[in-house]
Amino acid sequence: MSNKLIIRERCFVWEQRTYLMGVLNVTPDSFSDGGAFNNSAAALAQAQAMVAAGVDIIDVGGQSTRPGAEQITVAEELNRVLPILQVLRREITVPISVDTTRASVARASIETGADIINDISGGTFDSEMLPTVASLDVPIVLMHIQGTPQTMQQMTNYQDLMGEISNFLAARILAATTVGIDHRKIIIDPGIGFAKNYEQNLELLRQLRALKALNCPILVGASRKSFIGRILNQPDPQARVWGTAAACCAAISQGADILRVHDVQEMRDVSLVADALFRQER
């Protein structure tokens, strides 16, 4: 694995510290904060608060990927994402990723000022996604999923959880590099909560280090998810901060490079302490 990646003049040096990707959902229906930031003023205020708290990347999403989420049109996704990107890019300098599975949205987002594409399908929902990202020469996050957000909760049968996730991601890395994406610009995400049940999410966090063999930085998105709610008996996602902190600490101990989080200030403290405990080079 190349040990560094430069995005918008910021140098990400893998293995030395944990980086935080802050979630900015510009949707009316996301599971945790849907509707809270889907206008430009609210989105900008939230982004600026995340920057002040020490975020490294801001992840903008216009299509909810919660279980059972309805698919929206390309026009609607563009209408949600592009105006927010325009406002953010004028005001903040941190790298921005866009959470999308559509090549046309990816292209328009990068042209509007985004820096990274975060594709929950690993480039499988749209056959043009990987060639588009290759032509744009930007980093991409490739996530593991089975089925779609509408069907994934019924797609949790695995003979070998870590082996199947690893094989899927290896195949997507190969597909990406074959069409010209620089291996150094690929980040992998095992997809906690996506076609994984409660026990599988826990197993995935325990065995995360196995994915180091793929030689890509690892992104983990456990923030506020339902497996934490089950452990805490806490139905309100916004009340799962401490549980998220424990999951994030575990992920860092198992080699996570980037954490996708809602609560940047709290998880910055978690990552600073966990890095001091678990990183070899400080």
Rank of each mutant, 00 (worst) to 15 (best):
I117Q: 09
L136Q: 00
M50V: 08
V220I: 12
S40Y: 01
G255C: 02
R107F: 15
A239T: 05
P28G: 05
I165N: 04
P237W: 05
A247Q: 03
S226W: 09
A103S: 12
H183K: 07
E203C: 15
P237M: 04
N25W: 00
L232V: 07
F12V: 02
T132C: 13
F278E: 04
Q71F: 13
V141K: 03
L82W: 09
I192D: 10
D236R: 04
T73L: 05
V23I: 11
E91M: 11
I72L: 09
R102F: 07
I92C: 12
T177P: 05
A47N: 04
A176H: 06
R279Y: 09
F168S: 04
L208C: 15
M1R: 05
L130T: 02
Q254F: 06
A245K: 05
G62L: 06
P95K: 13
I228F: 05
L142M: 11
A170K: 12
D236E: 15
M155A: 15
Q234N: 06
M50S: 04
T112H: 10
A36F: 13
W14D: 01
S135G: 13
M162C: 05
F12T: 01
D160F: 15
R102L: 11
I145F: 10
Q71R: 11
D29V: 01
V74I: 08
R282M: 14
N118R: 03
C249L: 08
I58P: 03
H144W: 06
S64W: 00
E203L: 13
I6S: 10
L204V: 06
S32L: 01
S135M: 14
S2T: 08
E281S: 10
C249D: 09
L214N: 08
E266T: 10
L204S: 12
P28M: 11
S226A: 13
R224V: 02
R268I: 07
Q16Y: 15
A47K: 02
A41S: 12
V273M: 13
L277Q: 03
C216S: 13
R66Y: 01
G35M: 01
